[in-house]
Write a protein that binds this DNA or RNA. Structure first.
Lengths: 196, 196
DNA sequence: CCTACCGATCGGTAGG
DNA sequence: CCTACCGATCGGTAGG
């Protein structure tokens, strides 16, 4: 019956617990013994479910990357829309992915550098491609006269930076629902803090 | 005569090299043997200059904290100025500290959680106090009718987030001088991306 | 999934 | 600043 608790496969349980530990203690500072203990088993037993510690990090980082790309694609699917509207949708999608699994997002944002090669290089290429998507939206928004900025690349980095700080303070049980957070972030970034 | 290279004390050399390693590889993943090798000596020899690995992290993090506070105090010294002007100065000061030593800034921003207690708690209290300073400026800017935002705490976090992403892409030899970067960041954050 | 273990490496110290 | 070393812990494996 197990009414409330969702039944996760052992592998999914390991992923989830590893994500939480990597987030709070960092990848390098988390030992496989800690992870095993958090799951209530012995260190050696982990290896009947996973190949290595590195594999855990790899799966976390690349699953998130997939989610970000899927969300971006959906947000910009309607080519008839103004770029500024697509940008707003893309911001909301980005926030949705971040808030859906804050722990995994934090690992994605801060622990990717511990990926071993060639995964690390591959990861950076994906991230660059994702940023390029936002850059293009801002560029087109300027051409359509809806946006303005002296430096598109600069503006893109700043925008994503504001969004990516979210996992460091967002609490899933907070009073603001993710959609409202996304809305406010988009407003603040697009309209600024200055009055008129 | 050692014309160009500044003569650093051995301890300062250790700090500097440790900062660079902690930044690129992370605190936990950096071994004292790596650090020693980068300095051209044996691991054991480090301990005639420092007490522990932890001491290195502590010094880096708290020196930066001092710099941020000193800059903020100078930026907001003139109580006769409108809060919005003080805020702009504080943003510029923050960017100046970040760009002055990007490696140390990155360690300050990402490796502080490896501080052992009670330093870690003390550090978080300092950070909270610093954020409160920005929050107050934004609050007063609203009262003086120069700023607007539905949520001051939210706006403060977003603003600092945008600034704090800088060490992850800033290159000291880039074409934009720090003052210009500060100016653009302040503009983008205060005025937004939207046209009119 | 456990027991028992491997070689490697860790932060740090003693003695010079 | 080096040599030589300490106990502890690391990721991972063999065999069951």
């Amino acid at each position: 019956m197990e009414a409330t608790a969702p039944t996760l496969s052992r592998k999914a349980q390991i992923d989830q617990t590893a994500t939480a530990l990597f987030r709070t203690r960092g990848f390098a500072a988390t030992s496989m013994r800690e992870l095993a203990e958090a799951l209530g088993l012995e260190a050696g037993s982990l290896y009947s479910h996973i190949k290595s510690k590195q594999e855990l990090l790899h799966r976390i980082c690349f699953r998130l990357a997939d989610d970000f790309f899927a969300g971006f694609a959906a947000a910009t699917h309607d080519a008839a829309e103004p770029a500024a509207v697509q940008l707003r949708r893309a911001i909301e999608s980005h926030v949705r992915v971040l808030t859906q699994d804050v722990a995994a997002s934090a690992v994605f944002l801060h622990e990717w550098r511990h990926l071993s090669e060639p995964a690390r290089t591959e990861f950076l290429a994906l991230r660059e491609r994702y940023e390029a998507g936002f850059r293009l939206l801002i560029q087109r928004g300027i051409e359509q006269n809806d946006l303005r900025t002296p430096d598109v690349a600069f503006a893109t980095l700043t925008l994503l930076a504001s969004l990516n700080w979210l996992p460091s303070w967002y609490k899933p049980d907070g009073k603001l629902p993710p959609s409202e957070i996304a809305h406010r972030l988009a407003d603040q970034l697009l309209l600024g803090l200055a009055n008129s």
